[in-house]
């Protein structure tokens, strides 16, 4: 009886999960269908005429090669900046007492509840004034300037827990503040670095509003999230092409998530526990 109930539970959960991810299964399968098959048999999940034509068309003709490169550049650039700034900030906040520390904390935490989406026009104007409109660097800077208090807190709580003696020993060995951080402390914080890298990867890869408004007039600077939206605006009927573009954009992130999900889930969970 228990086994029976258990297997029913597993069957229900499996069907539920399958329906849950159906949109992605459909998208990947449609991107390998010929356009003829799409019209006659658009909903089936296994393409009969397995073709790479859509992917190739999206990559070469619909500019997805450029979009992909842009997504990678923007994502990597943002990760590097965010990792550097949040690690150093978290280290100073988590490990040292100094005047004004409380104010900094308060400022950063309060800004978490300020919806920056509604103050985006000055950001747009600032990037424009810096001469970075329609460039990837502009998008990278604006994204790095977003709120990363979660990462700062993750680093701060981690560094606060490292025993004082460890760093005093390093200081005894003649290592200064800067070197202690980079040679002793940062290497210890690998788990936090992992969480920050994957979380920021996913956020940057998926971000839409900032790159949308910062690349309004320059298709060659757009990341995938904006590129596909523009493609759909121009071409509403080419659904296999759109599905192929979607697959190019989403598959990398799904693979990376499946490989590194532990870090991601830990990071998300840590953000509400703290």
């Amino acid at each position: 009886m228990v086994i029976f109930r258990k297997s029913i539970f597993y069957v229900i959960m499996s069907v539920f999960c399958l329906i849950w991810i159906y949109p992605f299964l459909w998208m990947v399968s449609a991107s390998f269908k010929s356009q003829n098959e799409f019209f006659t048999n658009g909903l089936s999940l296994i393409p009969e005429s397995f073709t790479f034509e859509n992917i190739i068309r999206a990559w070469n003709e619909a500019n997805f090669e450029q979009y992909f490169i842009n997504s990678v550049v923007i994502t990597v650039g943002t990760i590097v900046i965010v990792l550097f700034t949040t690690a150093t900030c978290g280290y100073a906040l988590g490990r040292y007492d100094f005047k004004g520390k409380k104010v900094v904390y308060l400022l950063l935490i309060a800004s978490m509840f300020v919806p920056m989406e509604f103050a985006i026009i000055p950001i747009y104007d600032l990037i424009k004034a810096m001469g970075l409109m329609n460039t990837r660097l502009g998008v990278i800077l604006a994204e790095s300037g977003g709120n990363h208090i979660i990462f700062i807190l993750l680093f701060a709580t981690f560094f606060a827990k490292i025993p004082k003696e460890l760093e005093e020993a390093a200081v005894m060995d003649g290592s200064g503040f800067f070197r202690t951080f980079f040679t002793v402390m940062l290497p210890l914080s690998k788990p936090v670095v992992g969480s920050v890298v994957i979380m920021q990867f996913i956020w940057s890869w998926n971000s839409f509003l900032l790159p949308l408004i910062l690349t309004l007039n320059e298709p060659d600077a757009r990341p995938l999230s904006v590129g596909l939206y523009a493609l759909r605006g121009e071409n509403i009927v080419d659904w296999t092409g759109i599905a192929a573009g979607g697959t190019i954009a989403i598959l990398p992130i799904i693979v990376i998530f499946l490989l590194l999900q532990r870090y991601f889930v830990d990071g998300i969970a840590g953000s509400v526990k703290g």
Partner: peptide, 17 residues
Amino acid sequence: TFIFLPVVTTTSIVGII
């Protein structure tokens, strides 16, 4: 993992699909 999957995917692209 299954239930979490939509969260990590690009919202704008999911919208189009």
